[in-house]
């Protein structure tokens, strides 16, 4: 019995310690002094996590916008309120779906790759050799990836929202015959730039920080074996997705739930 309590205590201490480690790790790598070399490294990472993720994010956004319009139309038409389709599509995309789905896709597409890459660097002792020749791996390897994720995900979220609204228009207006003027007009009357677009972007900034942080930390702290890399990659996707969905609820409650 006492044995079990001790084990629980040890587990608690270890969790707390690794959380603290992750926090120090984040601060150390984010606020390293940037150099001209660092900008170049950052650019390459933005290309990898941002530009290369563009296709999957935009295609998902298009389909989600189209499905929203289709589903919304079948419900709204019962109340004769299909004019409110634009409002429904735009608000659900900007407030919820764009930040969350883009972050989940980002965790799967870019987060797992970041973990595997850094993990392999660790397993092949590239990180240790960098330290030996006096290069700080936090600044050279981790910081550009963190900042790249921080910049790329909000941009991807904007793209997701734009394409989704356009996809909704494609289905709602071109196919189902909602009047184009009321699609855009209702949308413009109900969407507020600060409250809806701004809060959606704020959400995606938080998600970007959390997802890339989890991804690079899992890569940096993994057990340097092939099994360790595969476990850490899985953990990245699972933890990042859970963190995104959980934080989304909290952020929504604070932003739109009237708790202020």
């Amino acid at each position: 019995m006492i044995e079990r309590i001790v084990r629980l205590g040890r587990w608690g201490c270890e969790t707390l310690e690794s959380l603290g480690d992750a926090g120090i790790f984040l601060v150390q790598s984010m606020f390293g002094v940037p150099s001209a070399e660092g900008f170049r490294l950052w650019l390459r990472q933005v290309h990898f996590v941002g530009v290369m993720s563009l296709a999957i994010v935009l295609v998902s956004g298009l389909f989600i916008g189209m499905v929203l319009a289709l589903q919304g139309y079948t419900i709204l038409v019962d109340f004769g309120a299909e004019d409110a389709l634009g409002q429904m599509v735009a608000l659900s995309l900007l407030r919820e779906l764009a930040p969350v789905v883009a972050a989940l896709l980002f965790a799967g597409r870019a987060g797992s790759a970041l973990t595997a890459e850094i993990g392999l660097m660790k397993a092949t002792e590239q990180l240790t050799s960098m330290e030996m020749i006096g290069v700080d791996p936090l600044r050279r390897v981790v910081a550009p990836r963190l900042w790249a994720g921080f910049v790329a995900l909000p941009l991807l979220t904007i793209g997701f929202g734009v394409v989704g609204v356009w996809g909704g228009q494609l289905v709602g207006v071109q196919w189902l015959g909602v009047f184009e003027g009321s699609y855009w007009g209702n949308m413009q009357a109900s969407v507020d730039f600060i409250a809806d677009v701004g809060n959606g972007l704020l959400k995606s900034l938080v998600f970007a920080l959390v997802v890339t942080w989890i991804a690079v930390y899992q890569g940096y702290a993994l057990v340097p074996t092939s099994e360790g890399i595969s476990r850490a990659t899985t953990r990245t996707v699972v933890y990042a997705s859970l963190a995104v969905l959980g934080l989304d609820f909290v952020l929504t409650a604070v932003m739109f739930g009237g708790l202020s």
């Binding site: 650019l43 933005v46 290309h47 941002g50 530009v51 563009l54 735009a90 900007l94 910049v151 790329a152 909000p154 941009l155 991807l156 904007i158 793209g159 929202g161 734009v162 609204v165 855009w184 949308m187 413009q188 009357a189 969407v191 507020d192 730039f193 809806d196 677009v197 972007l201």
Partner: peptide, 24 residues
């Protein structure tokens, strides 16, 4: 670099679209 530049430009244009067309 061109790709990254275009990506960021597209993001900014998207934000302008969300501002002007969607939130009016």
């Amino acid at each position: 670099e061109l790709g990254v530049g275009l990506f960021m430009l597209a993001g900014i244009l998207g934000l302008v679209f969300l501002g002007l067309r969607v939130s009016g």
